[in-house]
Design a protein around this nucleic acid. Sequence first.
RNA 1: GGGCGGAUAGCUCAGUUGGUUAGAGCGCCUCUCUUACACAGAGGAGGUCGUAGGUUCGAGUCCUAUUCCGCCCACCA
Length: 854
Amino acid sequence: MAEYTLPKAYDFSTTEQEIYAWWEKNGFFKPWNDPHKPGFDPNIKPFVISIPPANVTGELHLGHAMVVSMEDLMIRYHRMKGIPTLWVPGIDHAGIATQLQVEKALAKEHLTREQIGREEFLRRTWAWKEKYGGIITSQIRRLGASCDWDRERFTMDEGLSRAVREAFVRLYEKGLIYRGPRLINWSPGLKTAVSDLEVEYSEEPGTLYYFKYMFAAGESQPGDDLIYIPVATTRPETILGDTAVAVHPDDPRYQRYIGRKVVVPILGRQIPVIADPYVDREFGTGALKITPGHDPNDFAIGEKHGLPVISVLDESARVNENGGPYCGLDRFEARKNLWEDMRRAGLVIKEEPYMLNVPRSQRGGEIVEPMISTQWFVRIEPLAKAALDAVKDRRIRIVPERFTKVYYNWLENIQDWCISRQLWWGHRIPVWHCADCGKMTVARDNPTHCSFCHSPKIEQDADVLDTWFSSGLWPFSTLGWPEQTPDLDYFYPTSMMETGYDILFFWVARMIMMGLEFTGQVPFETVYLHGLIRDADGRKMSKSFGNVIDPLVVMNEMGTDALRFTLLVGSTPGNDLNLSLKKVEGNRNFANKIWNAGRFVINAIGQAPKQPLAEPDWTLADSWIWARMQNLVRDVERLFQNYQYGEAGRQIYEFFWSEFADWYIEIAKLQLAEGGDRAYYTAKTLTSILDMSLRLLHPFTPYVTEALWGHLKKASQAHSPNFSPKGGWEEALIVAAWPVPRPEESWESEKIQEFTIIQDIVRIIRNWRSENNVTPGKRIPATLVSDKYIHTLQDQAKAIASLAQLDIASLNIIESLSEKPQGSAALVIGHVEVYLPLTGLVAIDEERQRLQKE
RNA sequence: GGGCGGAUAGCUCAGUUGGUUAGAGCGCCUCUCUUACACAGAGGAGGUCGUAGGUUCGAGUCCUAUUCCGCCCACCA
């Protein structure tokens, strides 16, 4: 009677919760070398990750699941290696996503943010955030995230606000932040400026409009061929803001008209014809209308030629007072009306279908309008230079390597960063405008009066900062910066930044710039970029397409381990992962396999003798599985060092299932049945191989391994102290020692080779049986002939017989054969010949019938 | 326009210092409910590793060219 039995099916749903609570209760998530604790040793290098802020939409998506799984894998691995780890969770940050959600809720009540006021809006956002922030936290926990939750920091709390202000003020004082009217990307839907990165371009069919820029009265000269300059545009409404028409200085068609005046259609303003080499003579009509107020290139040309800048759109992208008769119209309506009016005035030449590259807001999806607006900017060149150097001189390593090129390219061509947003949810810009003297007071603490004229009539700038401004401070703000805290001292710079490659610029580059600027150190040593998760057919997951896989549903149905293993093993660095439920199902089966193999081992321990009588007499199978395990430990270690986490997981899977479970356990059954020392040492081998396998698997599938390991430990302790690993059983698998790779010993490859012979023989016999339709249960006689492996074969007779279903009583193993046996099938595998009798095995009649059917 | 990635079994993908007969999962076919597991076990079919050259004793792996697909950056009206 076994002393210890486990339920047949692994019940992950309750086990996961219990295990997680137990880890947390026992403080396993806390770094063992902590500057806040006695006995702290500052010389031990910790492994640190700050977990990226999850957004607050209330939905855990696969992107989060990926990040959390990957980071948790790294954390668990280092923790088991005895390296103090810190994983600082952050829950969310200010951002458009949150604000959009709240505004959506408002819209349902037919309210706008203006109607309820800033204070009420923020109150609602906080309430909303608290509600969903908590949900996200619990979901991240379910993924097994072994964070030090006590260090959890919310970005909108006092601590981060301080960090943000400190950062802003320092940059301002250094002259790296400036404010001014510039041409920026304006999102009319969100009514805010957005950065270059937040604009996405999509190819859409549109129209190229050709029209006439008539020369002003009295501008014509003798010899003129033209009475107008033909111009093409894709956005006719911007005609209202034109301040010049540009042609190429060497263009013979237009050369003589440079400097003349032309008339803006409908509005009647007179604007000059200018020459600029920027104009492409081949494109369109070879003449370009210049709208400095609504086009970045035109803006540059306008600056060069000292042209006035006319803005014709308001914050909702409606035409403003500069648009004359079109004032108040939506931009697209204005386009239509203006074009019709121009047609009536005889100014239209033609329309042509044209493929446009339309700039759209990443968040709202509406067309972004380049507009002149007063915004705050970060002068980026010095920051970018430092960030570039940090990667170039390898203080920061990007994995996979190829993204360094992308990183360089972006930083080398970077434009100043527009950091102000006309949103309400975010960190307010710490600048106060004085109503009396008009000067700006920039302060870390809320001032009561203007620092220039001491007037109390000051008002804080209405804008908030770009989400990524505060996110860029993440690696150090979570550790207490700007205070020089013990945490910051010890845990910064962090070791690893793990994230999707899609936010390399948004976030990673900004963290590097900010980290170098404010701490003088790189914020992390390694950037590991994982791929994006797509559906089974490689399509982007989108709600409208309906191919979104909800990680919560998957976890409920298949268990967290299955999901995690799928994400971790399915991904190679930087490459996208096509996720299908079939894959998760396969890994659910693997978790079940682990559980059941564990049940077998635990049962075996209970049945084995408690003491050995003599020195160990290892069988070939024992030595083989041990050698294979040593090999695996070496390979896994090497792969982890090279960030090949997926391949490492695959190899452990392979080992566990097709070597340990399929071969060793099958042979172990025989060895256990022998009883005595054989059974004792077999149970011991089973225990240590399972123990080590669970250790290796733990970072991938934390729950099932921890649960099973706990049972293994108990069963082993209950039975005999002899079954404990060297150094005894640790308190928990999560803090158990990672298997140490040992140098290869010469016997290892020998035993592996020998065992491979056995496997080959068994396989070739099974194959033959299957092909000849020998009843599976039927034990058949056999003759094995081998000079080279005679001893191995004799030793392994029982195992071979059992695995290949041979009749042990009529199994002949001999060195050589003078004469081939009559009526036998001869199989050759390597240096071994196998003879199987043909007579009486194959059911000849049945076989004939079967063949006839076919 | 610039850059990057992919192209390997019906499908989704591994395969990192070039090395024996190219792997896995799923799917398919044949058997088996053998006391860890049918979320399983045994066996099988299925690939000239996109194409064309080259380097090498040896190339899925390195080099050159090329086709197709995808992505990123830039943004010529």
